[in-house]
Amino acid sequence: PVSGSFESDGPISAISLYRVLARLNYTPVFACAPPISKILSDRYKTYELSIDSWGKSRPAIKKALTDLNPSLIVSIERPGVAADGRYYNMNGQDITDFTAKFDLFFQDSQCPCIAFGDGGNEIGMGNVAKTLSQFDIIPSITPCDELVIASVSNWGVYGVMAALFDLINKDLFELIDPESTANYLAANGCIDGVTKRREASEDGFPIAISKAIIQQLRDLVFN
Rank of each mutant, 00 (worst) to 15 (best):
T27V: 15
I76M: 00
S201P: 04
A162E: 11
A200R: 07
P143T: 10
F116Q: 01
N169S: 15
L217K: 10
S50V: 02
L167K: 13
I137R: 02
D177T: 15
V29E: 12
N127P: 09
P79L: 08
T46V: 08
S140Q: 07
I123V: 12
Y88L: 09
I114P: 01
S75T: 03
P79N: 11
V74D: 03
N89K: 08
F30N: 10
F116T: 02
D9V: 00
T142L: 10
I176T: 09
L220Y: 13
F116G: 02
L68C: 05
A129F: 14
D192W: 00
S57Q: 15
I73F: 03
A186F: 00
C111I: 14
F106N: 08
S109R: 02
I138N: 04
I61P: 03
P178E: 01
T96S: 14
T195S: 15
K62I: 06
L24R: 03
S57V: 07
V194C: 12
S37R: 04
R78H: 02
N89S: 11
Q216I: 10
N91S: 11
D52Q: 07
S53K: 07
L65Q: 05
I141S: 10
P139L: 09
S180D: 12
K63N: 06
C111K: 10
E122K: 00
F222C: 11
T99D: 04
Q110Y: 11
I137T: 07
V221S: 05
D118F: 00
D103H: 11
I149V: 15
N127K: 15
